[in-house]
């Protein structure tokens, strides 16, 4: 903690809170998405699965602000309800990946030479395959579906988190405060838990904010390929691949989930980048 305040004193510019309009918009949008994920029934005008009596492919206006889809379901309501699976995918996959990455990274950074090189070579191997292909392998072996898709996305991003944690562990374990704690005779597990882990994990937590956006995007890609959520559910990637069949008549059906996914990922990325910038102590 003291290191942090010292940096802030040297660089007073970073401690000044500077909010750009883009940042405010991103924050507002994320707030709306979170609200939609928590209480969709308050924001959605209709049941997302109810087949409306007014008919299919209605244009926007009237009782349906964004029109209806091929089965006469309200597009706006489906968009609102789609926020929850996307956020669950993003947060869930990132949590799994960060946990797995941290454990592997700590084991590599603190373990014996042999453990370390085994883990790091394994990571090199896994990193030689593009993330989407790795996720596809997991789905081939485990089967499709939204839970498996979440694990697939998580598995694919474990190696990059593990690398960061291991590098950070190496820095922290050579630092004087760890040496001091060890010198005081504090048990190794306590040193790891109280001193090494909190300091090694900080950069990963910052990066994982951006990771949530990437995971939402990857999850939507899997749904788009027909390997994620099951069709009737209101899910953005699935709405998209479904709407694609009718794109020549009514491209609005595809545009709505596209905009929702893009703005969500973009807003989270903007917030994550700002967080990273501040934690690095640079203001440009």
């Amino acid at each position: 903690m003291s290191a942090f305040t010292a940096t802030a004193a040297v660089l007073p510019r970073t401690s000044r809170i500077r909010l750009r309009p883009g940042l405010i918009l991103a924050g507002l949008f994320v707030a709306v998405v979170v609200a939609a994920a928590l209480v969709p029934q308050l924001l959605a005008p209709h049941d997302p699965l109810a087949i409306g009596a007014e008919g299919a492919f209605l244009p926007s206006g009237g009782g349906h602000l964004l029109g209806t889809d091929e089965s006469g379901r309200d597009v706006l309501s489906r968009m609102v309800y789609g926020a929850r699976p996307s956020l669950v995918m993003g947060l869930g996959a990132t949590a799994i990946a960060v946990t797995g990455g941290t454990l592997l990274g700590l084991a590599a950074g603190l373990g014996s030479r042999l453990t370390e090189s085994l883990i790091m070579r394994l990571i090199d191997v896994v990193l030689s395959v593009p993330e989407l292909l790795l996720a596809l392998v997991v789905i081939t072996l485990a089967g499709a579906g939204s839970t498996n898709a979440m694990f697939a996305v998580a598995f694919a991003s474990i190696p990059s988190y593990a690398r960061i944690v291991r590098a950070q562990t190496h820095i922290v374990r050579r630092s004087t405060f760890v040496e001091a704690a060890t010198g005081l005779g504090i048990r190794r597990s306590t040193v790891i838990w109280r001193h090494v882990l909190p300091n090694a994990i900080r950069p990963v937590l910052v990066l994982s904010t951006i990771g949530v956006g990437t995971a939402i995007s990857a999850g939507a890609a899997l749904s788009f390929l027909g390997l994620g959520a099951e069709p009737p559910a209101a899910e953005w990637g699935d709405m998209l691949s479904n709407g694609l069949q009718y794109i020549s008549n009514d491209w609005f059906l595809v545009a709505v989930p596209s905009v929702a996914i893009t703005l969500t990922v973009l807003s989270i990325t903007v917030l994550g980048r700002e967080l990273r910038r501040r934690s690095e102590g640079r203001s440009t």
């Binding site: 956006g213 995007s217 939507a220 890609a221 788009f224 998209l240 694609l244 794109i247 595809v254 545009a255 596209s258 996914i261 893009t262 990922v265 973009l266 990325t269």
Partner: peptide, 9 residues
């Protein structure tokens, strides 16, 4: 930040 399939669409 835009998913590839959205750019294509």
């Amino acid at each position: 930040a835009t998913p590839t399939f959205v750019i294509g669409i």
